[in-house]
Every structure is written in structure tokens, then in C-alpha cells.
Amino acid sequence: MTAAVDLWRAALARLPPGALVGSGAFADTGIDAPVWLALTRVSECTLALADADLVAERAAGHPGNEHALLLATQMVAHRARTWRDAAVRRHARTLLDAAVGPACDSPLRCAGGKVGGAGQRW
């Protein structure tokens, strides 16, 4: 897997942003999750990411990882408008629910009772 990660990093360094739309296919690889999440997120391909549903599914298993949260947010905010969108949204919801936890079942509670407060998590 080291060679695959090195190749991916080299491609990111040399190719223009968005050139790695096929990187979603790497969701099924054995690359360690933290490395895979970071590389997938910086690949800047969320608008046309191949296998977006698989990417969202794998990211959903890592609610404590900042790259997973940002990746899911990007995928929902900039969805590709394909038949995979429903699965992407479902996995992103699972991820975000797990990250927020049961104590934050409402935006006001997460914000400490202040909409737009410093403790805002939504």
C-alpha cells in the first residue's frame, strides 16, 4: 500500500485540482483510514467523485476524524446529482449524527442555548 499512497501523493502534487475524480474508487483499498480520508479529501473531486456512495460509507465509520467530517460535508453540499446521492446523504447523516452524539439532538442545545454561539456545532 505504500507505493499506492506515494503515487497518489505524487499525483496530487503534479496534477491540477479536480484531476483525480477516479480517486473514489480507492474507497475499497486497504489504505489505512486516516491516510485514505486525508488523501480523498484533498483530492478536491467532490463534485464528480467516482463511487461517492462508497466514499461516504467508508467515511461514516470514522466520526472522530476531521477529514471524514469535512469530506461528508463537501459531498452533501456539492452533490453530483446522480442516483448515488441518496446513499451519500444517508451515510453523511450517520457520520454527522455519530460525531455530534445524542446530547446534541437540537441545534440550540449544541450551541449552548445561543444561536450562533461559540459552542455552535451545527
Rank of each mutant, 00 (worst) to 15 (best):
G30L: 07
R89A: 13
P17H: 05
R58E: 12
A87R: 05
T40Q: 11
D97P: 07
P107M: 07
R89P: 11
A10V: 03
A4N: 03
A86V: 09
T94R: 15
A92R: 01
L69K: 01
Q120C: 07
G112P: 05
T73W: 13
V5Y: 04
L71H: 04
L39G: 03
P107S: 08
A118Q: 13
A72L: 09
V5W: 11
A118T: 00
E66A: 08
E44W: 00
D85H: 08
G30N: 03
A33H: 00
S23K: 00
L12P: 00
G117L: 04
K114F: 13
A38C: 04
R121H: 10
A99W: 07
L54F: 09
L12R: 02
W83S: 04
G119V: 04
G117V: 12
R84F: 01
V100Q: 14
R79W: 10
V55M: 07
L95S: 03
V115Q: 13
A33S: 12
D6R: 15
I31F: 07
R58Y: 14
R9I: 05
G117R: 07
R109G: 06
A56G: 04
L70G: 08
S23V: 12
A11E: 13
V5Q: 04
T73G: 11
P107D: 13
G112H: 14
M75K: 06
A92T: 04
F26E: 11
R58G: 05
L12K: 00
L15W: 03
Q74A: 02
P63N: 14
G112I: 14
L96R: 15
T82P: 00
R14I: 13
L37P: 10
G119A: 12
D32P: 04
A77F: 14
H67R: 02
M1G: 05
G18W: 12
A13L: 11
G116H: 09
L47G: 08
H67E: 02
L37M: 01
H91G: 09
L20D: 03
R79K: 02
A38H: 05
G64Q: 09
A56R: 04
R121D: 15
L37G: 06
T40H: 04
S106G: 09
A99P: 13
L96A: 11
H91Y: 11
V88I: 01
R79D: 03
R84K: 09
V42F: 02
L20K: 01
A103F: 03
W122Q: 08
D105G: 11
E44C: 01
R41A: 14
A4H: 07
G101H: 05
L95H: 08
T2Q: 00
L37D: 00
R9K: 13
S23F: 08
W83L: 09
A92M: 12
P102H: 13
L69Y: 03
A59C: 02
I31V: 01
L69D: 06
R58D: 12
K114R: 10
G116D: 08
Q74L: 15
L15F: 06
T40I: 10
T40C: 09
I31Q: 01
R121T: 07
L54A: 07
D51A: 09
D6F: 05
P16N: 00
G116I: 06
Q74V: 05
A60D: 11
D51Y: 07
D6S: 03
L95F: 14
A38K: 07
W83C: 06
I31P: 04
R81H: 06
F26M: 15
